[in-house]
Write a protein that binds this DNA or RNA. Structure first.
Length: 159
DNA sequence: GCCAACGTTGGC
DNA sequence: GCCAACGTTGGC
């Protein structure tokens, strides 16, 4: 039996890669995760079909800009072996790769980014990782309830 | 651009 | 194994 669908929040700086870039590209590989906790989620838990909140950090506004889905589950991040790449890791060897990436596919861009301030003020999102002070994790698990609340906010008609 | 919070490194 | 120093993240 297939395991239950999971829900995630992926952070990206829109100056680097935005929801608009993903909409244009259709899909992309999520290289460059260089944090062990985030790596473990990508390696062990992210499955094809899981849904992803696409979060803009270092942005205006900061917040969730849309939704993506996991298109391909974890595989070795090729950038770790590329000496010219900013994500090159000399300690990682091809026979035992340290870093993992996944592929994601565009699903929707919200009519309006759900700002971090909104997330922090919303009942039901008090425990969401991204609303915690000092939270830096770039790949975070999200509960189905949290995901549904954020999606509903993102789809709300502008006033 | 500032700086608090966090994760990693490395001397001991 | 401790922990100070350092580099990075990311909100503001």
């Amino acid at each position: 039996m297939a395991s239950a669908k999971r829900y995630w929040l992926f952070k990206s700086e829109p100056d680097c890669y935005s929801i608009d870039d993903l909409e244009r590209d259709g899909s992309t590989s999520w290289e460059g995760v260089r944090n062990y906790q985030a790596r473990n989620f990508l390696r062990d838990d992210a499955r094809v079909g899981d849904l992803v909140l696409f979060h803009h950090s270092n942005a205006d506004p900061v917040g969730v800009a849309g939704i993506a889905t996991i298109l391909r589950s974890g595989y070795p991040d090729p950038f770790q072996f590329d000496q010219k790449n900013r994500y090159y890791d000399p300690k990682s060897k091809p026979e035992n790769p340290t870093w993992i990436t996944v592929d994601v596919k565009f699903i929707e861009k919200f009519s309006e980014t759900v700002s971090l301030a909104t997330l922090k003020s919303m009942p039901g999102l008090e425990k969401m990782v991204v609303t915690q002070r000092g939270s830096r994790l770039s790949v975070q698990p999200v509960t189905k309830d949290e995901f549904d609340i954020v999606r509903k906010l993102g789809r709300a008609r502008k006033r």
